[in-house]
Nucleic acid binder design. Structure first.
Length: 445
RNA sequence: GGCGGCAUAGCCAAGUGGAAAGGCAACGGUCUGCAAAACCGUUAUCCCCCGGUUCGAAUCCGGGUGCCGCCUCCA
């Protein structure tokens, strides 16, 4: 498989450091607000990577973190008049709820920053000992200029950075580029005891500490949204590589942003659509289709029209699966190879999705002998892309089938009025009936 | 100002040197008690612009233009 590596800005052949094991660290979200579709795009990207690595036979050790303590969480807690832990737990639950509904595979762990304060403190001490960190008034900073590789991920040069041009620089910093590792707490703020007094971790340090704790000094893949490249991931590299003296991650994978009306969807711009709201309107498979139809490294523009288009497309797939229900057959190995060909090329989900539609089209034209094979092949591909279409409530089947039979008796007798009313009533309860010359088929909607 | 990404039909989107995939939408037709589905046909002489390389370029090279992201918390 080829994967685009932000570090080299090239697609590279993916090979794990160690045999068949792959360690993946993904930056999850800061628990300060409801997850929106942009977060979900990142989560779906990690899910596709996770699933496809497994598909290729790798044993994937995936860690997705939650940042449950930082300035924004504290601000949110103050606004709401609640403890920061309550805020963090609330949004974590919401995140995990929608992730589950979207059929995103669980990582091995979802560690939280506050569970690793000890590791964080040790890491900061290590940096201090190596003279890459300094303390001032209870704050601890990382000396960016001492890390000679600084900028290697984002392609930035230290001299070109316009630090402080848009925000005030903390006066305790020796250099505006330096970033905080440990932050002194104000009396009212949540705090932990440390060698530097009471305080809390800075934003970037928790990821370095947790990645190291769970996955070791060098990990195979580190991922996240492209907006994290700088400064977050750049700073993680600086901290981790200074501490261990080894490369932090071999591959850096970043998904592009999801925009709304040409602007990035984000909390600060107040233009975000909570995924929970969206799932009230659209099937999770539709959301997945919408996201996967675009390549993860291309920006997507969000609007309802595009989701409606995805919904129509999903209908087409579901319709075929319903028409071919019960038919079985062997997988078409050439189509599976096509699927792998698309996915091996930097997770080419748009191509894989297009292939799925090709299969639907072929399947609709296929004769009875082959339709099952198209169905099986399609299911196989969709399943490996994380679509979840197996939830047919079969226990309803006998009752529904009897009603459908009775209704068809009415149709045979020419009582179309009653038959149409039954169809309308059933549709209201989510049972969708299609009539044709051979009889009727039904499915849950 | 620096760094990165993108530019293909009404919309979304593949293709990366040899006759422009696919989805949605639209229109016409077939089938159908009706609805839905399905089927057939139509919808980019052309891939942001200008040069160049080549027998041949949407695909490679050079130069522009536009949009987006990052340089500040952000997936």
């Amino acid at each position: 498989m080829k994967l685009y590596n932000t570090l080299s800005r090239e697609k590279e052949d993916f090979k794990p450091l160690k045999g068949k094991e792959v360690s993946v660290y993904y930056c999850g979200m800061t628990l300060q607000e409801s997850p929106h579709i942009g977060h979900i795009r990142a989560a779906l990207t990690s899910d596709i990577l996770h699933r496809y690595l497994k598909y290729l036979g790798y044993e994937v050790n995936l860690i997705v973190n939650f940042t449950d303590i930082d300035d924004k969480v504290i601000v949110k807690a103050e606004e709401e008049g609640k403890d920061y832990r309550e805020i963090a737990a609330y949004f974590e639950n919401e995140y995990r709820d929608v992730i589950g509904r979207l059929n995103i595979l669980e990582p091995a762990f979802y560690p939280r920053a506050t569970q690793h304060i000890e590791e964080i403190i040790k890491l900061v001490q290590k940096l201090e000992k190596k003279k890459f960190a300094y303390q001032k008034d209870g704050d601890v900073f990382f000396s960016v200029r001492k890390f000679k590789d600084y900028g290697k991920l984002s392609g930035k040069k230290v001299k070109d950075l316009r630090s402080g041009s848009r925000i005030k620089v903390n006066k305790n910093k020796e250099d505006p580029l330096d970033f905080v590792l440990w932050k002194k707490a104000k009396p009212s703020e949540p705090a932990w005891f440390s060698p530097w007094g009471k305080g809390r971790p800075g934003w970037h340090i928790e990821c370095s500490a947790m990645a190291n704790y769970y996955l070791g000094d060098t990990i195979d893949i580190h991922g996240g949204g492209s907006d994290l490249i700088f400064p977050h991931h750049e700073n993680e590299i600086a901290q981790s590589e200074t501490a261990t003296g080894k490369p932090f991650a071999k591959f850096w994978v970043h998904n592009e942003m999801l925009n709304i009306k040409g602007e990035k969807m984000s909390k600060s711009l107040l233009n975000f659509v909570p995924i929970r709201d969206l799932l009230g309107e659209f099937d999770p498979n539709v959301v997945r289709l919408y996201i996967l139809q675009a390549h993860y490294r291309n920006p997507i523009d969000y609007n309802t029209e595009m989701l409606k288009q995805a919904a129509s497309g999903w209908e087409k797939i579901v319709n075929f699966l319903n028409i071919s229900k019960g038919a079985g057959g062997k997988l078409f190995s050439n189509l599976i190879e096509d699927f792998e060909g698309k996915m091996n090329e930097d997770l080419g989900t748009p191509g894989a999705v297009a292939l799925a539609f090709d299969i639907v089209n072929e399947g609709l034209k296929a004769d009875k002998k082959e339709i099952g094979s198209f169905r099986e092949t399609l299911s196989f591909i969709l399943g490996n892309l994380g679509f979840d279409f197996g939830k047919e409530k079969q226990e309803l089947s006998p009752a529904i089938e009897e009603i459908v039979r009775l209704r068809n008796d009415l149709r045979d007798e020419g009582d179309y009025g009653t038959a149409d009313r039954i169809r309308a009533v059933l549709e209201k309860s989510g049972i969708f009936i299609q009539d044709n010359s051979q009889g009727s088929i039904w499915r849950l909607k």
